Simulated scan of single mutants.
Amino acid sequence: MEVIPRSASRGRAALVELGYPAGDDVPLRASGRTFSGGGHFGVEIPAINTFRQLKATIAALQDQGVYCTRFDETHGSFLLSNAEIGDMLAICRENGYGLVVGLGPRPEYDVKATFYRTPFGLEMGRQINNNDAFAHCIDEAFRLCDLGCRGITVYDVGVLKVLGELRAGGKLPRDLVLKTSSHCMATNPAIAKIFADCGADAITTAHDLGLPVLQAMRAAAPEAALDIPTDVYLSKGGFIRWFELSELVQIAAPMFLKMGASVQNHPYDSVKPEAAAERVSRVRVGLEYFVANAPEGLKPIPATDRLVCRPVLPTAA
């Protein structure tokens, strides 16, 4: 069968010379990488935004005997009191789970971000557009670390860069994990490399990326974990990719499977105990598919790994 010539030949040749993929028709290969202490994957349940939701989800996990590594708070720390964040961190610490907290404030809460609320402004994502809000984000990072949080989700790449500099300079804890949100839209390997160069320890990928792009992201940002949505809210497309979980772990390790969202219509939906149990059941089904299709040797992240984001005791006032 004759192989046809490809379009954009100069562009493809330039990408190959720089070490980037020149198309999607590439063979899939195992990454050959693990977390620092071994292990290939973790499981993250997203949008656990209150202590009540967290408590119900932990109860459902224990009742159903389902593995989970950590949880992801997504509304933003700006909406939670010290007491509620402290309770969320404590219950995770006591039960052996990690917790990543979304950094606030974000443009949707900001008095100086009126443009963000327009159809055009939404296209800028959750980037901060004024110096005061930028300073507030940095201050929130200090607050979270004082409360014992060791995982922060960042929505603005500029904020990420500054937090990385503060951590490198010892102003923030050395064991703090910085994770980019899917709202930063890591949609290709070059963007993933930028995030890693700015200090990201974990990069949440855009929701609908195919295996070739994810494989290229792994190569472009070899030191960062990839956090990959495996099933998504109905408002984000509602897809479920259980049959690809084995391939995802093999090509993207070290990585986290973001699981359980497809039960809900929207990430801001309330997660009552019944919904928490249904989300955990969805995770259990996904992991059953993963176990049925995965080759031998794929292991979860060690509980002591820094990227679990296990909370520590709060700093004394």
Rank of each mutant, 00 (worst) to 15 (best):
L248K: 03
V16P: 06
Y268S: 15
V26Y: 12
N131L: 14
G32D: 11
G104L: 05
Y155V: 00
Y116G: 03
T205I: 14
R218V: 12
G39M: 04
F120Q: 10
R174V: 11
G286H: 06
T180A: 01
G148P: 03
A186Q: 10
N265F: 14
D25V: 02
A225R: 09
Q53Y: 07
S262M: 12
M124H: 01
E2L: 08
G164A: 03
L89V: 12
L89Q: 08
G37K: 13
E84Q: 00
I228L: 02
T304D: 14
F115S: 11
I138V: 09
T204I: 05
S81W: 08
T74A: 12
K171S: 08
Y20T: 05
A200C: 07
D146W: 13
P27F: 04
D110W: 01
V26N: 14
A220I: 14
A317S: 08
V312P: 05
K236D: 05
I152A: 00
N130H: 11
H183L: 13
L122I: 07
P273I: 03
D110E: 02
V291T: 15
G23R: 03
H40S: 02
D139G: 05
F71T: 06
I138K: 05
L89Y: 08
T180N: 01
A275Y: 14
T187P: 10
L15I: 02
K112V: 00
Y97E: 02
D208V: 04
A294S: 04
I240Y: 05
G104H: 00
E247H: 11
M124R: 08
F51P: 04
G151F: 11
V280R: 11
A220V: 14
H40R: 00
D146V: 10
L234Q: 14
A135G: 11
A22G: 11
L248S: 02
D208L: 06
A317Y: 07
D175M: 00
S77N: 10
C145R: 03
K193S: 08
A22C: 08
L54N: 06
D132F: 05
Q264P: 02
G164F: 02
V312F: 05
L234F: 13
D146G: 09
L89W: 08
N49L: 01
Q64N: 09
D63T: 12
S235C: 10
L99R: 02
M185G: 11
D201Q: 00
